[in-house]
Simulated scan of single mutants.
Amino acid sequence: MTAFAALHHADTALLLPNAWDHASAAALAAQGFAAVGTTSLGVAAAVGLPDGTAATRDATLNLALALGSGPFLLSVDAEGGFSDDPDEVAGVARELAAVGAAGINLEDGRPDGTLAPVELHAAKIAAVKSAVPGLFVNARTDTHWLGNGGDSDGSDLMSDVGGDMDDTSRRLDAYQQAGADGVFVPGLSEPSRITALLKTVDVPLNILYSPTGPTVPALADLGVRRISLGSLLYRRALGAAVETAALIRAGRSVEGPAPTYDEVQAFVRPASQRPDTLG
């Protein structure tokens, strides 16, 4: 079992924050997070591209190159693998593993609001596991997400009342059989539904956190093993930046913590040259 896989089987559930650039990942690692994911929305928005449309392959790989040697385990959100050709998806996985990524997130949702055929997504998973057996594959199904107004990166908690539990279970079973190391159902939030789904899966279940949904301890108590923050941190950072500029323009004071210039500079120095206060 790899170190990243072991985090999914530890005594406490894995809370996985999602970064969008080198500084955000380094800042999270400095706070003691052993693993950091990337957010496809943040990566796409940062370079002026749409999320969930397979447009950010290069940006995603470039970010993985920058983060793969960091002092944390890296999981990369690769949307649907940037291709419907399983061999091409396996090629992306090879590139991610080569630069140090420990995991990959692959989703079956499509930009047009439909779901990829279950056999196709399973084939992508199998191709990745065959090409890079040690790469942790988190297989995501959007049965509770698409059609409810959520974006590809899980930006808001949607009601899971309309989610098809039978289709969810069928898809997750196929993805497990294909070799997925974990499964992810963004938009699933109702505790009884989570509990029911946990009885049908044999690998760690990943749920998307939302401020309006169950707390991290509550999700962990249900048996959820991985809790992702998706694009939440990126969106809050963007909101804070706009709010700060608006407050200054209005002549009002600005409150709240902000890293100093030197602290941010420290995030790009070799670890041996960083101040002890940054970890």
Rank of each mutant, 00 (worst) to 15 (best):
A27M: 14
V92M: 03
H22I: 03
A78M: 06
S253N: 09
Q177F: 01
S75C: 14
W145D: 02
A27I: 08
R171D: 04
G162N: 13
V36I: 15
P17V: 12
S130F: 05
M158D: 09
S40Q: 06
L219G: 12
Q273K: 13
V92L: 08
I104Y: 10
D202P: 00
D77S: 03
D221W: 03
L219C: 14
A26Q: 13
A178F: 10
V203E: 06
A78I: 02
G251Y: 13
L208Q: 14
G147M: 10
N206Y: 06
P270G: 05
I248M: 13
G179M: 10
S152W: 08
V92I: 14
D173F: 08
E95G: 04
L120K: 06
D77R: 02
V36L: 03
H22S: 04
S159N: 12
L205P: 04
L247P: 00
R269L: 15
G109D: 07
L205F: 15
T114E: 15
Y175E: 02
N138P: 08
A26I: 01
L232R: 13
F267P: 00
S228M: 07
A59R: 10
L238H: 06
M1Y: 11
L278R: 02
M165I: 09
L247K: 10
D181P: 08
L49I: 05
M158R: 15
D166N: 10
P204A: 11
T53N: 02
G68N: 10
A64Y: 01
V118Q: 11
R57C: 13
L96M: 03
L14K: 05
A196V: 07
A122V: 09
A25S: 02
A54N: 12
S69E: 15
L233T: 03
Q265F: 09
H121F: 07
T56V: 14
V89N: 08
E95D: 15
G279L: 11
G179N: 07
A13I: 08
Q31G: 13
L41Y: 14
L15V: 15
